[in-house]
Amino acid sequence: MIDFTINNQKVSAQPGWTVLETARYYGIDIPTLCYHESVKPSGACRLCMVELKEGDWSKLVASCIYPVQEGIDVHTETERVNNVRRWIFEMLLATCPASEEIREMAARYGVVSTQMPVHDPDQNCMVCGLCARVCEEVVGLSAIAVMDRGVHKKIGSPFLRPTDVCVACGCCVSVCPTGAMQSIFDTVRGKPAMEMTQLAV
C-alpha cells in the first residue's frame, strides 16, 4: 500500500496506480479530455494537472500519467492548477468553438468565454489523439493517426484520403471527447454524408 494525500485527504493506493485513478477511486474530481479507460494515458490535454507540494517548493504534473508515490502531497484546486486549467479551457473554446461537449465542460469549471481569437468557427477537433490511440490499441489497426505537427497537427488517414485499413467500427467516434470524429470518420471510411433510408411505418 502506498499512502499519500490528495487535497489533504488521506488516500492509499496500490503500486501501478496513477494519481488520477486513485483520485477517481476516492471520488475526487479531476477533469480530463484526452483520457480514456480503454487505452494507455498520454498526458496531452493537460487538464488533469495537479500540484505536488513539498515544503515551499511545488510542481505541476499530469495526474493521468503520474504514478503514485509514498507521501506525496497532491492538490487539485490550487491557484496554479486553476490558472493552467482556465487557460486551457480558453484555448479550447477558441480552437474548438464548434464543440458542444467542450463548451459544456468548460462551463462546468466556470469558463464560459474566451478572450482568444477564433480562427475557425467550424473546428471541433482538439487533436488529443485519443481516436488514433484507440484505433491502434483497442482495434489494432492504426487506420488513423495524428499527422503533421505543431499548430498544423491534425487527425486523419494517410494522405487524408479514405483508407482500406479502416474497418468502420466507429470506436474512434465513440471515444472522441469533442464530437469531432463524426466528420473525420466519414472521410476515413470513405463515405460521403448521405441521407439514411428511413423506416417505413
Partner: peptide, 12 residues
C-alpha cells in the same frame, strides 16, 4: 512552428 503539438499549452 517547432512545437510537436501534442500538448495544448504548447501548441495553442
Amino acid at each position: 512552428e517547432e512545437s510537436c503539438g501534442k500538448c495544448l499549452p504548447c501548441r495553442l
